[in-house]
Amino acid sequence: MDTNEIHVGMADMEVSKSPDILASLGIGSCVAVTLYDPYNKIGGFAHIMLPDITVVKNKTNRKKFANTACEDLLAKMLEAGAKRNLIKAKIVGGAHMFGFAKSSILFDIGKRNVDKVKEVLNELNIRILAEDTGGDHGRSVFFDLETGKIRVRSVAHGEKFI
């Protein structure tokens, strides 16, 4: 089988199976939420931008927000045949890219994104196995659905696997 590298853009999500790789390039304050069922080798990847859909006016894209994206990603995983009790999460991103906060929306946005993702995953009863979050650098994320490992690449710190 050929490995496809599927790129997940901002405010988007994908669910696929081994041997595919789900990837996002250059994540800053956004957060990559990955869900994985190691038995069925099914993985989901959401690239969220903002924490909370309930506080904004424009609610057209549920994939943009931590709370709705996590719920929808889980639903898509189950639809694809993943087993609820086998699904574990890993999260990457949520950097603090600039010294200044442009507005209240952006205040500490990376950390707020990460916190919200954790809160929602906790409510959904999904354990977080690993994370590479915070800092002040961008990351590229490659989620290997064969192994469940995530390769994180950054300019400042090279490569690591979580």
Partner: peptide, 22 residues
């Protein structure tokens, strides 16, 4: 402010604010 990093990571911060309404 000055940042030396991947272009995607630089702009996502700026886009987050725009994304809240558009």
């Amino acid at each position: 402010g000055i940042v030396i990093d991947m272009a995607g990571a630089l702009v996502d911060y700026i886009l987050i604010e725009i994304a809240a309404s558009s």
